[in-house]
Amino acid sequence: MQIQSLRSTFLRAVLLSGACISTASHVSAQTFINVGTSSSASSQYTYWVSVGQSIEAGTAGAVIPTIMETGASVDNLRRMKRGEIELGLATAEAAGQAYRAIGAFEGEDKMSDLRLLWCYAALPNIYVTRADAAISNLTDLDGKPYNVGIPGSSTEAQTRSVFQSLGINPDMRASATADAVDSLRDGQVIGFTKAASSANVADASFMEVNATLDVKIVGMDDSQIAKVIEDHPYYSSIEVPAGTYPGQDTPVNVLAVAACGVATTGSLSDDQVFDIMKAVFEQKSIQEDAYPAAKMVDFGALTTELSTIPLHPGALRYLAEIGVEVPDMLKAE
């Protein structure tokens, strides 16, 4: 497992001396937290590295995150259940499923103490295929080798759900993004699903492949989207505008996932979450530099619009402080 520590040389020296940093934050001494993210080749990993930097800067070193490469949303939620991480990336849909023990978490114990902190992006799941494979509709993937995403990710779970709803049966594989890209180049698969960082900006993995191999994105027609959303009401559709990708002359419709930060009421206290929220919101420019799609997002508005589970009490307190109205259904009883 690759772990990127955000501890600075100064902070390491302070720790070795046994000192604590005093801040105006609610956190009176240093708190170390493990943060679950995604594949290191993913733009989501890059974003969460910047979140770690924002938290460390915004709390003046009172909260020290260790950013961990993981299998993304579903994997992060299971790690959180096992007590391996305190904070992590999860899509709104995966969080909703874990909270209710449905979908990817059917048959498991409900994560009734799971709480959402903030949402920062609505990510389109794009279907990337080799241009020479002549795939014009998802149904053309039937029986063909296809990579459904990072194992344990919401992208993998959603892709499998889409294929099941539409009665499509590819030869499905799952791997980290870098391996999916290599497999596409080598002809081991004819395509892969990837959560892009924005509907309006070409995904970096697509552009990397397209530099040496002609690829394209395949969308979903209206009837396919309607069928999948009928089966999975927590999904939503999003349009990728014409011209976003090379050779894309018309808009492409796909499903979206909302990327959020989650924790449990047991993993982080109300005061700790308040301080983390304050740091993330007030140090947003750090995240925008690393993840440009964040520039177009109002974290508060997106959180109240897309959350599928109650918000953490510390998050509620911070949002109230900055004047964000939260629907009653997002407040735990």
Rank of each mutant, 00 (worst) to 15 (best):
G247N: 07
Y99K: 08
D182C: 09
S5H: 10
S269R: 04
A92I: 03
E321M: 09
S285C: 08
P313D: 01
V162K: 03
V218C: 01
D109R: 15
R130N: 05
V218K: 01
I33T: 01
P246H: 02
T212L: 11
K227R: 11
L114G: 06
M1A: 12
S153M: 02
R79Y: 05
M80Y: 12
L89I: 07
S40Q: 07
W48Q: 13
L255T: 01
I229C: 00
S237R: 00
V257G: 10
A174F: 04
T264D: 04
S197N: 08
E325G: 03
D132L: 01
Y127P: 00
E86W: 12
P310S: 08
I67N: 03
C20A: 15
K284R: 14
S54G: 10
D271N: 13
A98H: 03
L116I: 06
D231G: 09
Y234H: 14
L306D: 06
P251S: 03
G187T: 05
I168S: 01
I102E: 15
K216H: 06
I55F: 09
E321Y: 11
M207Q: 14
D179H: 07
A101D: 10
P124V: 00
C20F: 14
M1W: 12
N210T: 08
G266M: 12
P233R: 01
E325D: 15
S112L: 09
T177C: 05
I322S: 09
S73W: 11
S165C: 06
T159D: 01
R78P: 09
T212K: 10
I225L: 00
F192V: 05
Q164C: 09
G103C: 08
M207F: 03
S8Y: 02
S285G: 03
M80N: 11
F32P: 14
N169P: 12
C20L: 13
S198C: 04
A290D: 03
R160G: 07
I238Y: 00
T37Q: 06
R7D: 14
A41Y: 15
D203P: 08
L268R: 03
Q272K: 07
L141K: 04
I33G: 06
P327L: 04
A94Y: 04
A98W: 04
V74A: 04
P65C: 09
A226Y: 00
I67T: 04
T303H: 11
E156C: 11
E333R: 12
C119S: 14
A19S: 09
A174C: 11
Y234G: 07
S197T: 05
I190E: 13
A263T: 13
Q4Y: 14
I150F: 15
D270F: 10
L6Y: 06
A259S: 11
P246M: 12
V74R: 02
D249H: 10
K81M: 08
M80G: 08
N147W: 13
P310M: 01
F10Q: 12
A211L: 09
P313L: 05
M68G: 13
G58Y: 04
I102R: 14
D214R: 13
A95L: 01
E239K: 07
F206P: 10
V209L: 10
E333D: 10
S25A: 15
Q2E: 15
I229W: 00
V228L: 00
S38Q: 11
A202N: 10
G187S: 05
V273E: 02
